[in-house]
Design a protein around this nucleic acid. Structure first.
Lengths: 207, 207
DNA sequence: TGTTTTATGTTGACAATGTTAACATTTAAT
DNA sequence: ATTAAATGTTAACATTGTCAACATAAAACA
């Protein structure tokens, strides 16, 4: 363990510490209330120190977003790829994990799947194709598998994936944004949604 | 028509003009970029004039939100209540109108159904029960009707409404927030989603 | 080792923004 | 006509992101 004297001139790991603290603050209070001054104050450095590691506040946030997608990946990929479980089970587990994550970390969820910093992300075409789409492609893979086993009707798996994702994302969004007031009915709503979705995928085919 | 001399001391209708201009600016550039200074400058008044009509910027935005919900109501209620059309047709028309609104006015849609100003809205318990829920209750009514006709399976219509709303809201959100990249596939995705949803509602019942 | 270069952190300043207080002007009430 | 209320203006303040100039530590190099 490092001997932390009375605040040395160099922090030592400021970049990572900024990303970590920013993520924590966002998770706690949301994206709109965090300020660079507060972050640096918590880390015991000066306000402008940020600019030695990030070109702007926006760039810092983009780093946090990247970090968030990585965490999500660590969470979901194992579920999708667990071949010891049936497609049905993985489908169910995925939905539940997705919803749980949104409910437990609503501010992070909004940051990852909301609208803010959308244009800025597209400039960095990195994790558009890497991290963000990873979850969607894993879902596509699961749906292809489901088609092969005959659990769902045949069809364009990308279109199916969009339908599934939209359904669960809508539920998550409405819940964490306070538009569905029935927090006690949550389990019923989720179970019903999941049932309707699977049943629809099973029996509906485009002409 | 009023004789508009060289900017009279009193604007005459500043409150309504502020709401209107704010809505326009939000529709154009989004909620995060509008400033009171810009609004008042466009209306030819001074910055602080806002505070004679609204206690804060937040209060002005809440007024805009209320206005937005009213517009949505004018748009949807007739569709729901048009008894000359079948339940299926109204269901289809509702979904399409909802999606069209979101795509044509993404910034307004986000303002109405997003997370920002959520806590502030709850303090005014006015349009929580009036306007906002109006659309949901209309949907509930349509679903009750659908159950009676036998188009969908029996079940708690509130839970069904949440499922339907979540599905369409998720699709709208992902599209306007740039997370579904397939703008050319939009028609296919919507048609497929609608089909899966209806098929699922038709055949799925909770045990 | 001693010197130089690079990386990192600090301080002071600036513009933009929401907000308030004190003042001004117009309209309505008495 | 006088007074009161409503509405609008100006000046100032605190907060925030950002930048330039300066300071210090670490690394590279001789």
């Amino acid at each position: 363990m490092k001997a932390k004297k009375t605040s040395p001139y160099h922090h030592g790991n400021l970049k990572e510490a900024l990303l970590q603290t920013a993520l924590e603050r966002i998770a706690c209070d949301g994206i709109d209330t965090i300020t660079l001054r507060d972050l640096t104050q918590r880390l015991g450095t000066s306000r402008s120190a940020v600019y030695r590691h990030f070109s702007s506040k926006e760039a810092l946030i983009l780093g946090v977003i990247e970090k968030g997608y990585e965490q999500l990946d660590y969470l979901f990929t194992p579920i999708f790829q667990d071949k010891t479980r049936s497609v049905d089970e993985r489908f169910e587990a995925m939905g539940r994990a997705y919803l749980d994550f949104a409910i437990e970390h609503p501010n992070v969820y909004r940051l990852l799947f909301g609208e803010q910093y959308r244009q800025e992300r597209e400039r960095l075409c990195d994790y558009k194709n890497e991290t963000q789409a990873a979850g969607l492609y894993a879902l596509v893979g699961l749906l292809v598998e489901a088609q092969e086993v005959g659990i769902i009707a045949e069809g364009n798996p990308m279109v199916q994936a969009a339908t599934v994702w939209a359904s669960i994302h809508g539920l998550a969004s409405l819940l964490i944004d306070g538009h569905l007031l029935m927090s006690d009915n949550l389990e019923a709503i989720y179970t019903y949604s999941q049932g309707v979705l699977l049943q629809g995928l099973r029996s509906f085919t485009l002409p």
